[in-house]
Structure formats: C-alpha cells, structure tokens
Computed example of a mutant assay.
Amino acid sequence: MQVVIFKLNDEQFAVETSKVQSINDAMEITKVPKAPAHIKGLINLRGNVISLLDINLIIDVPKKENNENSENSIIILEMDDELVGIVVDQVDEVLDLDESMIERPGDDNKRPYIEGIINFKDRVVTLINIDKLF
C-alpha cells in the first residue's frame, strides 16, 4: 500500500495514493457565499472547478497559528468520480507501507474515518479513509 503523508498543525495524517489525483501549491480560492463552514471555496485547476474543503474542521484539528503567512499545499482527491481538494499545512512524503504496519482501530472507534494508526519509530501517523470522511 502506498500513502501520502501530510501535516495538519503538528499532527501527521496519511491517505492512500490511489485516492490522490494531484498535489498542488496554494492557489487562488474563490469564496462561495453562504457555503457551510467546512467549504473553503472553489479553485480552478486546469479548467476544472473543484470544491476545496477545510479538512481541519472536518476532523477537528485546530489550525496552526500564523497560518496566513505559511505556504499550504492542496491535495486533490478523487471520490466517486468527483474531484475534491483539501488544504494541508505541508505534504511530507509518499511511502510504501506493509499492511502489517497499520494498527486497526477497535469496534468502539468514535471516528469511522480513521482507517488505522501507522506506528513508526519516531512518529505516529493517522491513516484516513477519505470515502468515510466525506
């Protein structure tokens, strides 16, 4: 399994590369009046209009302080033949993982979008199931 590891605030998360269509630098966002809070706006990517979601709000991770000045990345995800963008603080790396490295959550998992926890020697990464998240 291959995953993209990204950072939100000081936490690391991962999504399967099979769901990732592209990774882009920050770009101009068009605000949508009266849109729900988790929708940051729309972006135009090579002629495609894509909804940009605030993943921090969706998974309840506080925003990094001084976020206005930092460069963000946008991960374009493919879900049900539709493209959706999420803004992340930074994309760290793409890794090949062995399925045995993933600790699956128990049945009492309060957050169904958490696919599992990847335990490295120096850090812990939360694996997100994008289909269950949105």
Score class of each variant (00 low, 15 high):
Met1Ser: 08
Gln2Asp: 13
Val3Asp: 07
Val4Asn: 02
Val4Cys: 09
Lys7Tyr: 03
Asn9Phe: 05
Asn9Thr: 03
Gln12His: 05
Gln12Gly: 00
Gln12Ala: 00
Val15Trp: 08
Glu16Trp: 10
Glu16Met: 04
Thr17Lys: 00
Ser18Leu: 08
Lys19Glu: 09
Val20Leu: 01
Val20Ile: 01
Val20Lys: 01
Val20Arg: 00
Gln21His: 01
Gln21Arg: 02
Asn24Ala: 10
Asn24Cys: 08
Asp25Ile: 03
Asp25Gln: 13
Asp25Gly: 13
Ala26Asn: 08
Met27Ile: 09
Met27Cys: 14
Glu28Thr: 13
Ile29Phe: 03
Ile29Trp: 03
Thr30Phe: 00
Thr30Ala: 06
Lys31Arg: 07
Lys31Ser: 07
Val32Leu: 06
Pro33Met: 01
Lys34Phe: 05
Ala35Cys: 08
Pro36Trp: 09
His38Val: 07
Ile39Ala: 03
Ile39His: 07
Lys40Met: 10
Lys40Leu: 12
Gly41Pro: 06
Leu42Gly: 05
Ile43Arg: 12
Asn44Trp: 03
Asn44Gln: 08
Leu45Glu: 10
Leu45Asp: 11
Leu45Gly: 09
Gly47Thr: 07
Asn48Phe: 01
Ile50Pro: 04
Ile50Asn: 03
Ile50Ala: 06
Ser51Trp: 00
Leu52Ala: 05
Leu52Ile: 05
Leu52Asn: 08
Leu53Arg: 01
Ile55Gln: 12
Ile55Lys: 13
Asn56Phe: 00
Leu57Pro: 13
Ile59Ala: 12
Ile59Asp: 12
Ile59Gln: 13
Val61His: 07
Val61Cys: 09
Lys63Gly: 03
Glu65Asp: 08
Asn67Pro: 00
Glu68Pro: 04
Glu68Asn: 02
Glu68Arg: 04
Glu68Trp: 05
Asn69Lys: 07
Asn69Ser: 06
Ser70Thr: 10
Ser70Asp: 10
Ile75Pro: 00
Ile75Trp: 02
Ile75Met: 01
Leu77Ile: 05
Leu77Asn: 01
Glu78Gln: 04
Met79Ser: 07
Asp80Cys: 04
Asp81Cys: 04
Leu83Trp: 00
Val84Thr: 05
Ile86Tyr: 06
Ile86Asp: 04
Val87Glu: 09
Val88Asn: 00
Val91Asn: 01
Glu93Cys: 09
Glu93Trp: 11
Val94Gln: 03
Leu95Met: 09
Leu95Pro: 00
Asp96Gly: 08
Leu97Glu: 11
Leu97Met: 15
Asp98Trp: 14
Glu99Leu: 13
Ser100Gly: 06
Ser100Trp: 12
Met101Cys: 10
Ile102Gln: 06
Glu103Trp: 01
Glu103Arg: 12
Arg104Asn: 12
Arg104Gln: 14
Pro105Arg: 03
Gly106Pro: 06
Asn109His: 14
Lys110Glu: 11
Lys110Gly: 10
Arg111Gln: 15
Pro112Lys: 15
Pro112Cys: 13
Tyr113Phe: 15
Tyr113Pro: 08
Ile114Gln: 14
Ile114Met: 13
Ile114His: 13
Glu115Gln: 15
Asn119Trp: 10
Phe120Leu: 15
Phe120Gln: 14
Phe120Lys: 12
Asp122Gln: 14
Arg123Ala: 10
Arg123Val: 11
Arg123Ser: 12
Val124Leu: 10
Leu127Gly: 13
Asn129Met: 11
Ile130Thr: 11
Lys132Glu: 06
Lys132Pro: 07
Leu133Met: 11
Phe134Leu: 11
Phe134Asn: 00
